[in-house]
Amino acid sequence: MDQQAVATLLTPEGWALLESLPPYDEHGAMALGEQLRRAGHAPELVSAALTQSRLRAAGERKFGPFAAGMLFTPAGLEQATRLPVAARHAARFATAGATRVADLGCGIGGDAMALAGLELGVLAVERDELTAAVATVNLRHWAEAEVRHGDATTTDLGDLQAAFLDPARRTSSGKRLLDPRAGSPPLSFALELAATMAAVGVKTAPGIPHHLLPDGCEAQWISVDGDVVEAGLWFGLAARPGVRRCALVLSDAGAAEVTDADMPVAVPGEVGAYVYEPDGAVIRAGLVAQVAVQVQGRLLDRSIAFVTADRYVETPLATCFAVEEVFPFGLKSLRTWLRDRGVGRLTIKKRGTAVDPDQLRKQLRLQGDNEATIILTRVSGRQSVLVVRPLRRAGAGVPA
């Protein structure tokens, strides 16, 4: 999706064609394209409209029904904040008392849409000209939203007292950057804004090391349906007093959060009847001990992010498994165990072990019609195999 394709769609004919298309069907796209060309539409317009229709269908995952009226670029869609997450960002600024927010590095406008949806004024700045044009289309319904094509670091922000930054986090070769100091704009620019503004937020990679967290910020890791999507750094009035690290878990069942406001001590112990695998956001935030306390459990090992408990306790912060058997790890003993039970399909989960699951699966020479799930991990320092049965995620009821 290049600038010419977007320009083609923004003509009266182009927009009318795009809006007239049926829901995207990958299998019927080629036939539909041929039909539209036979009807007299220019090939470049047909190509642009069908590409945009495909992107809109993919965009539903992040933007729900709003995607049907938006424009996308492939890179813009990939990097855009999911609307439920953007709504959480916007709520922080509203709670902080902001009335107008600078969205610096606005991309296709996802966060700016959420801010405008809360009736906050928005100055959205994007340095890529095509992406800025797409953001302008996506923000067309909100008169209080202004899009500027420019560099966030040199844009005159006037007397604005709130800003949200979504720095570019890839190198020119496409490699992901985990260090926010190497982003564009870099973390140093965000810190300069935080020193003068009342409320500042920075979206960064969820893999950010804890030692890079700036002093005085609240770091929040967010997962959506089990996928850790970001870490947000919040400063000033956008940060909550007493919270340094937190994890927010969003799913169809709702939202759950755990913070480091209280730091319990969790100790390792024997394997109980259940094992809990904390959500990735909880692990990234370093808050596994809070899950152990919540389920009245203990750690399998001091350095491993698995929790065990003697009874089932519902929590949206972890996936629960019933433990059926535990034995020391050994290739021969594991192979025998699986062969005796006719296991031909095996799910392997691991943490705290150098075993490669794909290589192990080949070595096990699985045969049979049955299936099993195992966890390879350390239990009080010993390499162990836990044979487990996955239970329904919390919120679906107590397992039978």
Rank of each mutant, 00 (worst) to 15 (best):
E325T: 11
Q220W: 05
I348A: 09
G59L: 12
G254C: 10
S303D: 14
L160K: 06
V137I: 07
P167A: 14
G117V: 10
L139Y: 07
R169V: 10
G269E: 08
G158T: 07
G342Y: 02
M70H: 06
A75E: 15
V202N: 10
Q383V: 06
K62W: 04
V307R: 01
L376V: 09
D260H: 11
V228R: 08
W221D: 10
P357F: 09
D310H: 05
V200T: 12
S47N: 07
A231D: 02
I348V: 15
G59M: 12
R181E: 15
W221P: 06
V313A: 13
D279A: 13
G272M: 07
D262H: 14
A309T: 00
C217P: 01
Q79P: 00
F235I: 11
T95N: 05
L115F: 13
L191C: 14
D227C: 06
I348H: 06
A49Q: 03
P74T: 12
D356N: 15
Q383E: 15
S251W: 01
D252G: 13
L177F: 10
S53W: 06
V387T: 07
G272D: 03
V379Y: 00
E144C: 11
A162N: 08
G368D: 08
A198K: 14
M1H: 08
T373E: 12
A48K: 05
P43E: 10
L83H: 12
G33W: 05
G59F: 09
H141T: 14
Q79A: 15
A400C: 01
Y24D: 04
S20W: 06
Q296I: 02
R140D: 14
V291W: 00
R37G: 04
A90P: 03
P357M: 12
E44M: 05
R38E: 15
F329C: 06
P390R: 04
Y274F: 15
A102Q: 00
L118Q: 15
R88C: 07
A285P: 01
G110C: 08
L123Y: 04
K362Y: 01
R37L: 11
A195E: 14
R298S: 03
I304T: 02
A75Q: 13
R361V: 02
R88H: 10
T377W: 03
F321Q: 04
G28S: 13
A143G: 13
G97P: 00
R140C: 09
R245I: 10
V267P: 00
V288R: 05
Q79S: 11
R37T: 13
G109A: 12
T155I: 05
P180N: 14
T155M: 11
I208W: 04
V323E: 04
F235K: 09
A68D: 09
G344R: 09
G254V: 09
